[in-house]
Every structure is written in C-alpha cells, then in structure tokens.
Write a protein that binds this DNA or RNA. Structure first.
Lengths: 273, 273
DNA sequence: TACCAGAAGTGTACGTTGTAGACATACGAA
DNA sequence: TTCGTATGTCTACAACGTACACTTCTGGTA
C-alpha cells in the first residue's frame, strides 16, 4: 500500500483505462464505425483514437479480419429467451424477432458491409439465431425448413438494411441528402420514358410515399411461412424430417416419413430431444 | 488506299485491338473479377492485363467507382420482353424472372460485393427491373406494392447469392473446400450444446440436406405475394393507388380511392398510360 | 532484494492500393 | 504544315495492413 494513487486507480475502474485490452479495442472500433462508417476503421486511425501506436493493437488482435468478427458479434444484443409460449403465437413472436434483427442494422449500418467475408459466428450471434429457430420450430415445420425460414428472415433484414444504408453512407460521404442527390439525376431520369411500366407506376405515385421495404417484405414472408405451415398440417404428403414428398400407400395408414433413414432420424431425435 | 496493311487491320476486327476503349476496359475488368474475385481488380492489375500503364485507364474511366458501376450494368443480360401475357400467368413468369436475377449472381459472384455503394443504375439493369414491374403490375396490386414486390425479390436473389458466395470466395482464397473448412471448426461446434433448439434440429438432420435458400425463399415470397393479391381482389378496402385503407361509405358504391388526390392521379395515369 | 521471462507497447519498413499532375506522342481538321 | 485535342506514360503521394526487431514494464521466484 505504498502508493495510494496506484491503488485508487486500480480500485476505481480507471484501472482498465491505461493499458489496452481486447474489449477496449473492439468497443472503440464499433464507436468509430458507428460514427464515420466502416471505411474509417483503419488500424492506424483506431490506434490513434485509443492513444496508442498502430502496432500495439496487434498485441491483442491477430489482424483486421478477426477484429471485424469481434465487432460484428459485439453488436448483437441479447434477444430475451422465449417464455416457451404456445405454438399459436409463433407469428407475432417471429415478427418481433425479425424487427430486432433489423434494428441491429439500423443502429450499426456498417454491418451490411461486413457480410462478404466468411465469419466465425460468435456467441451472441448464435444466441439470436437460436432464439429464431426456437420460435419457428414450434410451427412443426420440418427441420430443414425451420432453418431455412430463419435464415430467410435474417437475409431479409440484411437486404432491407442494405437498401437504406446506401442512403445513409452516401449522405455522409457527399454531404448531400439522398432526396437531393436523386433530384440532381435529371440526366438519368431523362432516359426513363423508354420504360413504360416504370413510368406509369411513377406517375401513379408509386414513389411518392414508398413502402418500408422491410415491413412489406416481412409481411409477405410471414404470409408465405404461414401458408406453408397450414399446408403442412393439413396433408401428410411431405416427409416430417426432410420435407420431400411422401408417396401415399395404396391402402392403410399414410406414411409420415419418406424413407427408413428419415424415420430413424426422427426416432433418435424424439429420444434425445 | 496507300497502306493496305492499315486497311486490313481496320477492316478485320483487330481494329479495336490496339488502343484502349471503355468497352474493352469494362470487359477485361469483368473477366478478371469472374476469374479471381473483385479484390483482384485493381487498376494496376487491370492495366497490366490489357497491356497498358495504370494511368491509361483514367483516360477512359473517371475512377474506380465508376468502373464498378459499368461492370455491374454490363453483366445484366437482357430479359426477353413479356409477350403481354394474361394476368393469370404472373406467378410463373415472376418465378423465372427471379431465377434469372439469381443466375446473374451465380455467373458473377463478385456482384454481391459491389452492393454497398450508391449506384447509378444503368440501362440494362433498369430494363430488368422494368420487366419485373411489368409482370407484377398485371396482378392489380397498388403501384407502391408492385415496386416493393419486385425489390423484395431482387433483394432475395442478392441475399441468397451472398450466402453461397461466401463459400466460393473463401474456397478460392484459402484453397480449402467449404465443407472441409467447417469440419475443422470443432472448437467452434463444441460450444453449441448450449443452444438446445439448434442442437436438436441438427440431430434431426436439418443440415444433412439443406434446402436451397433461394428456392425456399422464392416460394415463400411468391406465396406471400399471391396471398396479398387474393386479399386485394376480394375486398375494395384499400386505395388502388397508394394502398392505404379506404373507409367504406355508409351507403352507395364503395370508394376505390382514399382521397381526391389519389383519384386524380389514377385518372392522369389512365389517360397517359 | 535480485533476477528474469514474458507481456505490452514502439518504431521502422515493405509492398499494396487509388489517383493527381506534368509530360510525350499521335491524329484529324484548318 | 500547323495546331488543338485525345490518348498513353511516368513519377510521386498518401493511406492501407502488417512483418520484424526493439524497448519497457510487470509479477513471480530464488
């Protein structure tokens, strides 16, 4: 206890201040990306922002790609776990799940720029995925379709985010609002009378109050999944495991699985599940 | 005709060979991206491939971003125009339209990496869009929904392409097949028993024969649009122009438009259209 | 208390990238 | 023949990710 200054520092949270750490780096990188876009996140600028040299970062992070992995996982907030609700509420729950996914992109528009590299999924991202699976699984769709449905919605969130992120990023880089930017493209629109349907729809006001692409897509996709669920529960003509069509036997009880292999898989699943 | 050599050259196609041109540059860039990915397309490498110096390119192209715009438009092939088919076939036609969009991504996986900048759409891209609008417009959906539907499908194609492009690109860069790569991630999967639904679905074989994300999504979205179309044609409670709900008058003929402004827009459209 | 291994941070350097700016050449019209 | 314009070349710069060798700081053991 010879140095009360040092002790105070260690005890009162400033402890983490001096000295780099993985967490500090990732947080700073996210802040930087939020504020100025992903392009602004260079190792040099990041280090400068933290008050260290560039190479100091490499003591904590193997390279920039790994840093991006960490950033991506860091911004996934925890989806609250399902209260094991009944199967009936799946649609409403899935709807809010998807909105939450979309929300992440809204808070961190740079996420859409990081999708083109192979990621190792992090714990938070997988937790969000799990939550989605859990909701859709209750519909009774075959496993492969459960996965496909959740990925479809995740893709939709990304897609919609991409569409609007373009506007945000461009506005920042050019200092011109999206509206303004398109208004200046007269020379572009001048060519558009060659496209009759496009012109007609435009004149009918299709672009006056455009629909939110995400909300529109969300309802279409949910309708599509709902239709699928109804289909599934009505007739037994699809294999419960892989979703492939099942031939109806000439007489007797209709089959549930397309092959012995699938029946066996379902059995194992019931036993372990 | 003093120089037959020169004439021969001009007449027999080699004419375009010596000397750079916008078209040659764009074509070479597309070829390079197809072969080695978008990352390989640097101004230096491109120039080298063409047998010119780097800066020669800048005599034809203002900068790299514009080059990307041109590349993107160049790979949109012409969708054959609709034969003005009946409204009934819209679903089948839209399905093949979407597959065609998807196909473009399959031929040119680097397309997915170019989506995060603001594009000026080119003639070929707009033509493809127009074709999609034309098909959906026949369903009688309100204009804004027609646009949203086509954009939804285009987004789906991009989304699915993104998912599979990751595998392609990663395989090229690491020399390891996608399957192999994931097999080596034992240390990752070891953490996955914390996620019960994910584990269960996995054991049920959800990942043994995964569905094609695009085909699955396509059917869901088409189902969703179809449901919407049925909805629309059954009751008149939505404005034909903007899709907002229309209040039903106490007596008399139900209204088609939510406001005089929309009715007027529809009138103008009918007159010009 | 002395020591020393390893962690943490620094400094320099290399090979890329996109592109600005000055210079050279070649060609069509006057 | 001359001259403006289009085209291609050369050099140079700032920014990028990161390899490598160096110093400094710290915490446990003799």
């Amino acid at each position: 206890m010879a140095d009360p200054e040092r002790s105070t520092e260690l005890l009162w949270g400033t402890g983490a201040r001096r000295g780099l750490s993985l967490e500090r780096i990732v947080r700073a990188a996210v802040e930087l990306a939020d504020a100025e876009g992903l392009a602004a996140v260079s190792m040099r600028r990041l280090a400068e922002r933290l008050g260290f040299t560039t190479m100091a970062l490499y003591r904590h992070v193997p390279g920039k790609t790994e840093l991006l992995d960490l950033m991506r996982d860091a911004v996934h907030d925890e989806h609250e776990p399902s209260g094991a609700k009944g199967a009936a509420e799946w649609r409403a729950e899935l709807e809010t799940w998807a909105r939450r996914e979309r929300e992440a992109y809204r808070r961190h528009p740079w996420l859409v720029e990081t999708v083109d590299v192979r990621h190792v999924p992090g714990p938070r991202a997988v937790a969000a995925f799990e939550r989605g699976l859990e909701i859709v699984a209750r519909t009774g769709l075959p496993p492969a379709e459960v996965v496909a449905s959740v990925e479809l919605l995740a893709g939709l969130a990304g897609s919609a985010a991409r569409q609007s992120a373009v506007a945000v990023r461009a506005e920042r880089s050019t200092g011109v609002s999206d509206q303004e930017w398109w208004n200046r493209r007269d020379s572009l629109f001048a060519h558009f009378d060659r496209y009759p349907t496009l012109s007609r729809l435009y004149e009918q006001g299709a672009y006056d109050t455009p629909l939110d692409p995400f909300e529109f897509g969300l309802q279409r996709v949910l309708d599509g999944i709902e239709a699928r669920v109804r289909d599934e529960s009505r007739d037994e003509s699809k294999c419960e495991v892989c979703g492939r069509p099942v031939e109806r036997p000439a007489a007797g009880r209709p089959r549930s699985y397309c092959s012995p292999a699938c029946r066996q898989r379902a059995y194992r699943a019931r036993r372990s599940g």
